[in-house]
Structures are given as C-alpha cells and as structure tokens.
Amino acid sequence: MKFKAKFIEERIFKILMITSTSIILLSLGAILGSILYKGLPSLSWEMISQTPKGGFYLGKSGGILNAILGSFYIAFGATAIALLVSLPVALYINIYRKKFSKYSNLVRLCLDVLWGVPSIVYGALGFSVMLYIGLKTSLLAGIIIVGILIIPVMIRAMDEVIKTIPKGLVEASLALGSTKTETAFKIVVKQALPGIITAILLSFGRAIGDAASVMYTTGFTDNIPKSLLSQAATLPLAIMNLVSSPIVEVQNKAYASALILTFIILFLSIISRLLSIKYTKNKSH
C-alpha cells in the first residue's frame, strides 16, 4: 500500500472537518450547559410566579413574572400583526403573480434585505417616529416595532412553503371555477398549513428573543402591563438589567431568567420541528 501525498492530505482535511463540526456542536453544548449549570440552582417557582418585590434588585425576594408576561404580550401582539400582513403577501407573490416572475423575485430580494436590517436600527428609528407622533414608550409601540421587525422573517418562511405547493393543485381549483382568492385561502392555505404554523412559531421565537428593538420603545417596569399604553418589561432586557448588577444573588437571577428564556425558545423549536416532520411524512404518502 503506497501512501501517496493526496491520501494523506485527504486524511488530514477529513480530521479537520470532523473536528470543526464537533467544535460547532460543542459550542452549542457549552451554551446550553453553562446556562443550565448557572441558572438551575437559582431557578425557583418564585422566579416564575411573582413580580419583583421591594429590594429585588438588591438580592431580595420576587420573580420576573412581569418580564415573562411582557415578552409574551409583545410576541403575541407582534405575531398577530405580522400574520395579518405576511399571509396575504406570501400568497400574493406565489398565487396572484407568477411564482418566479421578476416582480415576485424583487419582493423576495427586498424582504431578504429587510431581514438583515439590525434590530437596533428599527428600535432607534422607531423611537424617533414615536416621539414625532407623540406615542409614549408602551406595550403598543413595542408590538408595532417588533411586528414590523418579524414581517420579513414570516413572509419568507411562508413563501418557502407556499412555493412548494404543486401548480396542478392551484390550476385544478381555478379550472373548477373558483376565484384566485378562494383558491389561495381555501386550497393553498389548507395545504400549506403545517408550514405556515412553523413560520408563525419561528417568528414568535424571534419576537420573544429580540431586545434591541424594544429597548427604547416599550420601556421597563416592575408591574405587569395593564393596558396597551402602559410600559412593559421584556425577558431579554430583564436579563440584561439583572446581569449588570454587582451583587452575586442578582446575577444568579439573571442566569435563571436566561434559563427560562432558553426553555421557551427550545420548546418552540421542538414543536415546530415535530410539525415539520409530520408535514413531510404526509407529503411522501
């Protein structure tokens, strides 16, 4: 057996590749592991079920219910707004226009670019606009900004699913005399429903995790928001506030809050994965 240079080279690179892949997986493990390790000891029912009490930021009792609820309100509101815009647009560029027409592709390009706009830019500009029209920092402002932020994510995710709907199905429905609207909402939406739900969950996760856009638009408060116009706390911002404290107990609370946020995100991601597995199964049979 001759050991030619080319085989040795291949060997070396293969080892490098496997190492890189392992390191990537290890870094995911390190993230989850260190959050779990630091967060679990401080995680308690009190953290989840109570709002901050007096002296909470000095290490006394209380929890972050205000931030958990605030984040959920914002994520639900923003997802609802985004859904109202995204579904029609995704249907429009696939059903009403030709799937790969110049126009549809231009829309896709713009959405992709919009997706890349940093959320701090949305936050900063959104705050200026709010000042201009006289809207105070509030839950409503946060919902609108985050809604706008996740619209491109949601449209593109739905677009990827709706793209795969076979042309024959649409044509059959049109040939039977239904209008494009009926075809879009009754046939295409039904067929793409699991994918659409996945897209919604993906955007929901994005909405709950984003902090830079709500930093100046929703404000921060220890109370659970009572109306759309009251300020609200969000989980990521609560985590940031807590971790910047010099007191160790308070920092531990930040780790516990980070663990809660991670659980929420993992939960969403597992559900959407299960859905997509079910979806592909249905498709192949």
Partner: peptide, 19 residues
Amino acid sequence: LIDILAGIPSVIFGIWGII
C-alpha cells in the same frame, strides 16, 4: 442542532459569553 443554535436569542449568547 444547528437550527436550534440559530434560534437562540442574542441575549443568551451574551450571558454565555459572560459565564
């Protein structure tokens, strides 16, 4: 697993960095 990594919010990455 890489998809899970993609979904993790940036604040969690920050906390990981600090830890």
